[in-house]
């Protein structure tokens, strides 16, 4: 019997960690022990999370496959399903379908320097890759992360940001759109902050994820700095339902974001009709 692509696997929430006022990280394990063992994914992929009776929505897998036994999802409450996900407790059951979508081009990254540029919740898919890279440290060069959020309290993964910054060969730059009385760091939008830092494009691949306008401006800035379009990688967002290229909803040009994305290089986007309209 072939498997049913619409039938979610049951999973249990084992840990909940508030990240920002509207964002929570859920750590889950798949209930079927065989599946929990065999479930594999790669950084950049996402899953469809179900709350039965409310619905489903696509969420990036924020954990790295190098750390096994659980999956992590970082969810911002913005609508029906995401708000319902915030109301769950440890022990609650959800449905998980996936992993879906294409991963970041891992094999092409070996030996290179990596620049990550994230905005808000956009750090979630990048976090998977960052931790993957740090767990395979020898295979990759320098790591830089430029991360911004609306305000200091909207910065997600604060503990990890510190941990990363302490590692050798990793630099973390933080910025916020608006500071508060305790914030001593830079204030400003991610794209202009990026221009200030002006990282060298030498042997480097840049990854960016965040609100569409940020991605657009970051891509423009990177191009001006000399990053070639095939070394600029982003993950796109479109409304999704099936997650598997059947419901016809999430295309840009002939590419379904759920199936052929969400990861694209700028070079690929340039070849799609409307690909740069983000």
């Amino acid at each position: 019997m072939s498997s049913n692509i619409y039938l979610p696997h049951l999973a249990t929430i084992i840990e909940i960690e508030a990240q920002t006022p509207d964002t929570t990280m859920l750590r889950v394990t798949l209930d079927d022990p065989t599946l929990a063992q065999s479930f594999t994914y790669r950084p950049g992929q996402f899953a469809e999370l179900s709350i039965f009776g409310v619905g489903e929505c696509p969420i990036s897998i924020a954990s790295t496959p190098t750390r096994k036994g659980f999956l992590e999802f970082c969810v911002r409450a913005v609508g029906q399903v995401t708000n319902a996900l915030h109301e769950l407790d440890v022990g609650s059951k959800i449905g998980v379908r996936g992993p879906y979508g294409n991963p970041f081009p891992l094999s092409e990254l070996e030996g290179r320097n990596l620049l990550f540029i994230g905005g808000g919740i956009g750090l979630a898919p990048l976090r998977s890759l960052i931790n993957y890279v740090l767990d395979n440290r020898d295979h990759y060069g320098e790591v830089e992360l430029i991360y911004g959020a609306r305000s200091p309290q909207d910065l997600a993964f604060k503990d990890e940001l510190k941990l990363w910054d302490e590692q050798e060969g990793v630099t973390v730059y933080l910025t916020v759109d608006r500071g508060d009385e305790r914030w001593r760091g830079p204030v400003g939008f991610v794209p202009s902050f990026l221009r200030e830092i002006a990282p060298s494009p030498q042997e480097k691949v840049a990854f960016t994820c965040g609100p569409p306008i940020m991605i657009k401006l970051v891509m423009e800035a990177l191009e001006e700095m000399g990053f070639p379009p095939d070394h600029m990688v982003t993950t796109l967002e479109m409304k999704m339902k099936c997650g598997v290229g059947k419901c016809g909803r999430c295309n840009i040009g002939s590419r379904y974001i759920c199936r052929d994305g969400p990861v694209f290089t700028l070079e690929q986007l340039k070849a799609l009709p409307g690909g740069l309209e983000l």
Binding site: G53, C247, R249
Partner: peptide
């Protein structure tokens, strides 16, 4: 072939449907 997926019922019991969209 476009469709929507939608839940009917409550979190206690219900059905997931697909409908033309």
């Amino acid at each position: 072939h476009c469709f929507d997926l939608t839940d009917v019922g409550s979190t206690l019991s219900g059905k997931r449907f697909r409908c033309w969209d």
